[in-house]
Write a protein that binds this DNA or RNA. Structure first.
Length: 488
RNA sequence: GCCUCCAUCGUCUAGUGGCCCAGGACUCGGGAUUUUCAUUCCCGCAACAGGGGUUCGAAACCCCUUGGAGGUACCA
């Protein structure tokens, strides 16, 4: 059975060395979408073969962020499948067994070259302007017995792959087509490091085969090492998976996306108040489209129409403006109970108590606010006056709304509202209209001063709705208390 | 340096030889609605990198140039 018609098994294989950045997240998203679209398996493999850069906290954050995005793996850490372990550091015996096959078949050899010698070789190549660079194959022909004797005597060695010196190695990339490299330009890469850990190249090939990977979807920085991987599959006599290299995500102005240029990690965006649905939607659309004009989509809607063929080969820029717009769209559609919980947590964080308010009241506040929020973090900020009397008033709004004559207006509004027995949006609106008529003032002249008095700010939901929720007693007393601050 | 990949509005994209003097979305500008701010709705600005081919016909196919990205580690 060839790789392309095997059951779909794909993986996300991060290295726990730092935070999950958006590029990695998108790779995970495409793997997840493809697995779900094809009714296949999405597994998570931790590539922790670099002991120097290994970071326990990074691993923890990685799993948390992946789950937050909703990309739950079918197999991997915390949910072992049949082909584990899922941590490469726990598979050392497997790599030892597999490297022996390559040593036995003459496809790999021990190399005793020191770091210093390698540097000298590289420097000499640079100086002479040599076309063929890389390791000079100095140890390629040391007989196996001699090498093993030297190791027995305590010499340290790495194991390198014996790459063919001539010929062409090619592969078919699913979104770029056929790609070829001259073998003479490939050097004898290291398979097993001095510390006995495998390199990425060796471990990923062995694992992808042993763990049944059908398609490798990974960043396009791997394109140039793919021919070496193909050669490795061939040396083992294994069928390579289908390769699909994803374009990079660039910063808005071009160049690498980095913390310096703004938020770059999944955790950053979560803290900023983005919904996971937004991030997944936006990242998926960065380089992929559903084939029609839809943009704001649910994860399920995207999975339903997801195909690898619609991924673009072009590198893309990360436009945060559009992300923000999209977050607003997703907040409009978000579950109100979820938004309410987020809002309540945010309010409590700034010490505004909500426990004396009913769930219905809190939900009503959310309904009023959600269409004007671009970030989840906007919610508690905009909601404070529904739960507590404003302690400060927006300075700019004060000069604009509490100028000459405002106190009289506030008083007349208060008097117009006092007799209301039903205090709801429509009765309040009627009272305002009646007051406008009797006073000869426009509605716009009537609302500014009392809006500021009741909410502390000049912008927000419709005034009638605010008043209804805040309640008659609170509205009247807030206006009364603010009157001395207004000009007569 | 060498190898590889990429190239449509500022940004994300549609486009698989005639439906394209190029469509959608974000941004930006204007307008409508309105009790404020948003939302929403209309209208508008704005692109096939350049040069050669192929073809009756090219944004689409080929070549070159230019520009961008990646690789060239005992990191992934």
């Amino acid at each position: 059975m060839s790789a392309s018609n095997r059951p779909v098994r794909v993986r996300f294989a991060p290295s726990p060395t730092g935070y999950l950045h958006v590029g990695g997240a998108r790779t995970a998203i495409y793997n997840y979408f493809f697995a779900k679209a094809m009714k296949g398996t999405f597994y998570l493999r931790i590539e922790d073969t670099d002991r120097k850069r290994y970071n326990e906290e990074a691993l923890h954050d990685l799993l948390r962020d992946l789950r937050w995005l909703g990309l739950q793996w079918d197999e991997g850490p915390d949910c072992e499948g049949d082909v584990g372990p899922y941590f490469q550091s726990e598979r050392l015996d497997i790599y030892a067994r597999e490297i022996k096959k390559l040593l036995d078949s003459g496809n790999a050899y021990y190399c005793f070259c020191t770091e210093e010698r390698l540097q000298e070789v590289r420097a000499a190549q640079e100086k002479s302007g040599a076309v063929v660079t890389g390791y000079d194959r100095h140890c390629r022909n040391i007989p196996r017995e001699e090498a093993e004797e030297r190791i027995a005597r305590g010499e340290k060695a790495v194991i390198r792959f014996k790459v063919p010196e001539t010929g062409i190695t090619g592969f078919d990339d699913l979104i770029r087509g056929h790609i070829e490299y001259q073998n003479e330009l490939l050097d004898d890469l290291v398979l097993i490091k001095r510390d006995q850990y495998p390199t990425y190249h060796f471990a990923s090939v062995v694992d992808d085969h042993l763990m049944g990977t059908s398609h490798v979807l990974r960043g396009d920085e791997w394109i140039s090492s793919t021919p070496k991987h193909v050669l490795l599959y061939k040396a083992f006599g294994w069928e390579p998976p289908v390769f699909c290299h994803l374009p990079v995500i660039l910063a808005a102005g071009g160049g690498k996306l980095s913390k310096r240029k703004g938020a770059a990690s999944v955790g950053d965006f979560r803290d900023l108040g983005f919904l996971p649905e937004t991030l997944v939607n936006f990242l998926a659309l960065l380089g992929w489209n559903p084939g029609d004009d839809r943009e704001v989509m649910t994860i399920q809607e995207m999975i339903d129409v997801f195909t690898l063929e619609r991924i673009n080969p072009k590198a893309v820029a990360f436009d945060e403006k559009k992300l923000q717009w999209m977050n607003g769209q997703h907040i409009h559609q978000a579950d109100e109970k979820f938004l309410a919980d987020y809002m309540v947590k945010g309010l409590e964080a700034i010490e505004i108590k909500t426990s004396s308010f009913s769930e219905d009241y809190i939900l009503a506040v959310v309904k009023l606010l959600k269409n004007r929020a671009h970030f989840l973090t906007d919610l508690p900020i905009m909601a404070s006056y529904f739960f507590t009397t404003p302690k400060t008033f927006d300075e700019k709004a004060k000069t604009k709304n509490w100028g000459a004559g405002s106190r009289a207006i506030a008083q007349s509004v208060r008097k117009a509202l006092e007799p209301l027995t039903e205090f709801n949006a429509s009765s309040i609106e009627q009272a305002f209209h009646a007051l406008a008529e009797s006073s000869g003032l426009r509605l716009g002249d009537l609302v500014g001063a009392v809006r500021l008095a009741v909410s502390g700010v000049s912008a927000g939901p419709g005034l009638w709705e605010i008043f209804e929720l805040v309640g008659k007693q609170n509205v009247l007393s807030r206006i009364l208390d603010a009157e001395p601050l207004m000009e007569p």
